[in-house]
Amino acid sequence: MGSVRTNRYSIVSSEEDGMKLATMAVANGFGNGKSKVHTRQQCRSRFVKKDGHCNVQFINVGEKGQRYLADIFTTCVDIRWRWMLVIFCLAFVLSWLFFGCVFWLIALLHGDLDTDYKDDDDKSKVSKACVSEVNSFTAAFLFSIETQTTIGYGFRCVTDECPIAVFMVVFQSIVGCIIDAFIIGAVMAKMAKPKKRNETLVFSHNAVIAMRDGKLCLMWRVGNLRKSHLVEAHVRAQLLKSRITSEGEYIPLDQIDINVGFDSGIDRIFLVSPITIVHEIDEDSPLYDLSKQDIDNADFEIVVILEGMVEATAMTTQCRSSYLANEILWGHRYEPVLFEEKHYYKVDYSRFHKTYEVPNTPLCSARDLAEKKYILSNANSFCYENEVALTSKEEEEDSENGVPESTSTDSPPGIDLHNQASVPLEPRPLRRESEIGSRR
């Protein structure tokens, strides 16, 4: 089982795998120059863009038009607004034209077009017409509009002379109601789609790998820009990579689940303020055997998904993003964004995407760390350097704002901070800030 798991979770494809794949392509008759073999020097295209759209195009789909027309309502909801407006206008105009032609044909076959009612006051002739005051196609078209929109100006009306005319008036009224219901329903469904809710759900630009509770963890940050909550919010993550099976089958995008606390339930989050999602790199993680150097040379993509129900409509929305291997910062942490004021908490989104480097973060893999092949620094050293990194950030910001350097908390000259780390230190809580992250 261990060997199978290692093969499945191998992220960085070796040169031997690339040569094996190329040999397979030639042997199977696919070596026509169009096949692409992804190596370390040639990274694959992003499968999920940063804005959440999937970078996929469908080609050679059989009976595409028929399949889309069979699900016309979903098609109308998914198309762009400009095409929705075109369909909206065409549906009414074509129905008016169709029934206008029908009423014109009825008048033509009944002989109503030969009668001039402007110079004739004989009401008996008017009563013999199928539709009064309809003696041309324009008049028939206007009567069709008046019937379907129930305008009723009063000059044109159907008589009991022709039952077919009466039937067409009733039929057009029913068709008009159906068109109204369909168009209004599609427009309302399109307006109520929770897709735009994703514009106020954000992911951090970069993911980070750092120590948390004595273990290497992959972390990324999510935030909600609205005050309205995302009900039943939960997160998922998958690692996408290519691999070759033991039988020699090439899988271009193998999807591997990344555990973010599904078993323990901590994948469900209360997204009021930005939260750091934590994936513990343990023996079940696809990143277990990867060191910093392996991450730098790897070719994979981590897709992160945030799902929840919109509070206003109770409709489920899904926000997506992805991180390539070069977008994962090893040995970094996110800057705090949640600050405790006197009577409330304040979230500073200008710090949302910012990170700071944490010294002495192990550069080895989580496996080597678990097997004690890498000796961690003293816990006080880690905490102290973590505090120094934050303090230096604040000093830089104070210097930019014009604060005198004498007010900063610099260490005395001639003292090495790293050498001082081995000395037991008193706890130094942050002056006014605390970061709330997901705790395992």
Rank of each mutant, 00 (worst) to 15 (best):
G2T: 08
S3I: 02
Y9I: 14
S10L: 05
S10K: 05
I11M: 13
E16P: 06
D17S: 07
D17C: 07
A25E: 14
V26L: 08
V26Y: 09
G29E: 15
F30N: 15
G31D: 13
G31F: 04
N32A: 09
V37T: 12
V37D: 14
H38A: 12
R40L: 07
R40W: 07
R44C: 09
S45F: 07
R46W: 01
R46D: 01
K49P: 02
H53F: 08
V56T: 15
Q57G: 14
I59K: 15
G65K: 14
Q66H: 13
R67F: 06
R67K: 11
Y68R: 09
L69N: 09
V77D: 11
V77K: 13
D78M: 13
W81C: 03
R82F: 09
W83Y: 14
W83I: 01
V86M: 15
F88A: 09
F88C: 11
L90R: 01
L94Y: 02
C101M: 14
V102I: 05
F103W: 15
L105T: 05
L109F: 03
L113S: 09
V126L: 14
K128G: 13
V134S: 02
N135E: 11
A139P: 03
A140S: 12
L142K: 03
F143V: 07
S144K: 00
E146Y: 02
Q148M: 05
Q148N: 02
T149I: 02
T149H: 09
G152T: 05
G152A: 03
Y153F: 04
C157W: 04
V166K: 04
V166D: 02
F167Y: 05
M168D: 00
V169K: 04
V169C: 00
S173L: 15
V175C: 06
G176A: 05
G176Q: 14
A181N: 08
F182W: 04
I183V: 09
A186D: 14
A186K: 12
V187G: 05
M188Y: 05
M188V: 14
A189S: 14
M191N: 06
A192W: 09
A192M: 15
K193G: 05
K196Q: 09
R197L: 11
E199A: 14
F203K: 00
A207E: 00
V208E: 00
M211D: 03
L216Q: 02
V222N: 00
L225S: 14
R226C: 14
H229V: 14
H229W: 13
L230V: 10
L230H: 10
E232G: 11
A233D: 01
H234W: 04
V235L: 04
R236F: 04
A237P: 01
L240H: 10
S242V: 13
S242G: 14
S242T: 13
S242I: 08
I244D: 14
I244M: 11
S246I: 08
E247G: 06
G248M: 07
E249V: 12
D254A: 12
F262Y: 09
S264G: 05
P274E: 09
T276W: 00
I277Q: 00
I277K: 00
I277E: 01
I281L: 06
I281C: 01
I281M: 08
D282G: 15
S285M: 00
D289H: 07
L290N: 03
K292S: 12
K292C: 13
I295V: 07
D299C: 04
F300L: 03
E301A: 01
V303C: 08
V304P: 02
L306Y: 08
L306E: 00
E307K: 03
M309K: 10
E311S: 08
A314F: 09
M315Q: 12
T316P: 08
T317H: 13
Q318S: 11
C319Y: 10
S321D: 01
S322T: 04
Y323W: 09
L324K: 08
A325N: 10
I328K: 00
L329K: 09
H332Y: 09
H332W: 05
R333C: 14
Y334H: 05
E335M: 05
P336V: 09
V337Y: 07
L338F: 06
E340R: 05
E341C: 05
V347I: 11
V347Y: 09
D348N: 08
D348R: 00
D348F: 01
Y349V: 07
Y349I: 06
S350R: 13
R351F: 12
F352Y: 03
Y356S: 15
Y356W: 13
P359G: 11
N360S: 06
N360W: 09
T361V: 11
R367A: 04
R367F: 00
D368V: 10
D368R: 03
I375R: 12
S377F: 06
S377D: 13
S377E: 14
N378C: 07
S381H: 06
F382I: 12
C383V: 12
Y384I: 15
E387P: 02
T391C: 10
E394K: 06
E394M: 07
E394A: 09
E396C: 08
E396F: 06
S399M: 13
E400Q: 10
G402Y: 11
G402P: 13
T407P: 08
S408Y: 07
D410P: 10
S411L: 09
P413M: 14
G414S: 12
G414P: 11
I415D: 15
D416Y: 05
N419I: 10
N419Y: 10
V423L: 15
P429T: 05
L430Y: 05
R431H: 14
